[in-house]
Computed example of a mutant assay.
Amino acid sequence: MDTVDASEKPRVHRKSVLEYVSWVVFILLAAGLVYSLTTNPNYQWDVVAQYFTSASILRGLGLTLVLTAVSMVLGTLIGLLVAVMRASSIRPIMLAASAYITFFRGTPVLVQLIFWFNLAALYPHLAIGIPFTDVSQTINVNQIMSATTAAIIGLSLNEAAYMAEIIRGGFTSVGKGQLEAADSLGMSGMTKMRKIIIPQAMPAIIPATGNQVIGMFKETSLVSVLGVAELLESAQLIYARTYQTIPLLIVACLWYLAMTLLLSYPQSLIEKRYSRSTAAIGRTIMPTESIQIGEGK
């Protein structure tokens, strides 16, 4: 008669009494929540359905997505520049980048948005030109600093401070052995950055950047204080007229939740892609490194 090794038997997870109790409590709470949501007439689900796809709400959602995309692109580009400055060996440049990061991370983004919107109170006119020449152009700050412009500037500059630290952390995650191997191959600084540092830093940068995108999407609600007609402001404009506050806030929350879930999916795909590319880089560069070192000896 065949005997089965005890180590090959599948391990059976025995549920404890606490787990059964937890399930009962969870089901009771979920049932109570569903009952409250479906029986409380104050939620006014018919009003939620009425305004969920209304034209003004969809326009506000579109503007929210535009603000998120533009602010993240500009914030990432500026953040990359600040990260390079932060890693510079030239002390004044490094100190300037550190001061930038400290200021924008240390002050509330809402305060920054209001500050940029009222910039004309400090600088009504700005002159841009070539020093020591008569070539200059005066700009009326009050005319160009609209609510949308102030929102993009405020969100982008604030995001750049966080992206600078994320990118710098990704660069420092690249092993010294990889950098030494690239140096031994005679790679230039740009080639090393493009083929070694950036691909291997991406697995550390992408997850945090994905979280920043989701955070930025929700953070755009702050620009409603400037009067920008994004998603939350659009909902506020409607309930200021109809006095249906709760249903319109539910509409905004449902759209924020739906878009957050939608943005999370491509983030997971990008993470998988870069994890595979990093493994491939690790397999290819190390044999090359050993060959070059052997030839040098």
Rank of each mutant, 00 (worst) to 15 (best):
T3W: 10
R11N: 12
S16F: 10
Y20T: 08
Y20Q: 08
Y20D: 09
V21F: 11
F26S: 11
I27H: 06
I27T: 09
L28P: 00
A31N: 11
G32P: 03
V34P: 02
V34G: 09
Y35M: 06
T38F: 11
T39N: 10
N40T: 09
P41I: 01
N42H: 11
Y43Q: 01
W45M: 07
W45S: 05
W45T: 06
A49H: 11
T53R: 08
S54Y: 00
S56Q: 10
R59T: 03
G60T: 00
G60I: 00
G62T: 03
T64K: 01
L65R: 02
L67K: 00
V70E: 04
V73R: 02
L74F: 02
T76D: 03
G79N: 02
G79K: 00
A83K: 00
V84I: 12
R86P: 02
A87Y: 03
S88P: 02
I93V: 14
L95I: 11
T102Q: 14
F103R: 10
F104E: 05
F104W: 13
V109F: 02
Q112A: 10
I114W: 14
A121G: 14
L122R: 12
Y123Q: 12
Y123L: 14
P124S: 04
L126G: 06
I128C: 09
I128H: 06
I128E: 05
I130P: 13
T133S: 15
T133G: 11
S136G: 11
T138G: 09
N140A: 12
V141I: 14
I144N: 05
T148N: 08
T149R: 05
T149W: 03
T149P: 04
A150S: 10
A151F: 01
I152N: 06
S156Q: 09
N158P: 04
A161Y: 06
A161L: 09
A161R: 04
E165Q: 11
I167F: 00
R168V: 04
G169K: 02
G175M: 08
K176N: 12
L179Y: 03
M187A: 03
M187Q: 04
S188Q: 08
M190Q: 05
T191A: 13
K192F: 05
R194H: 09
K195A: 09
K195Q: 12
I196D: 00
I198K: 01
P199W: 12
Q200S: 12
M202A: 13
A204Q: 10
G210S: 01
V213Y: 10
G215P: 00
V225R: 06
L226G: 03
L226V: 08
G227I: 06
V228Y: 02
A229F: 08
E230L: 03
L232M: 14
E233T: 08
E233F: 08
S234C: 08
Q236I: 13
Y243F: 13
L248F: 00
L248R: 01
V251H: 07
V251G: 06
V251S: 05
C253Q: 07
L254A: 11
L257I: 03
L257V: 01
A258V: 12
A258I: 10
L261S: 07
L263Y: 02
S268Y: 05
L269Q: 07
R273T: 10
Y274P: 02
Y274F: 15
S275H: 04
S275R: 04
R276P: 02
S277G: 12
T278K: 07
A280I: 08
I281W: 13
T284Q: 15
I285L: 13
T288H: 15
I293Q: 12
E295F: 15
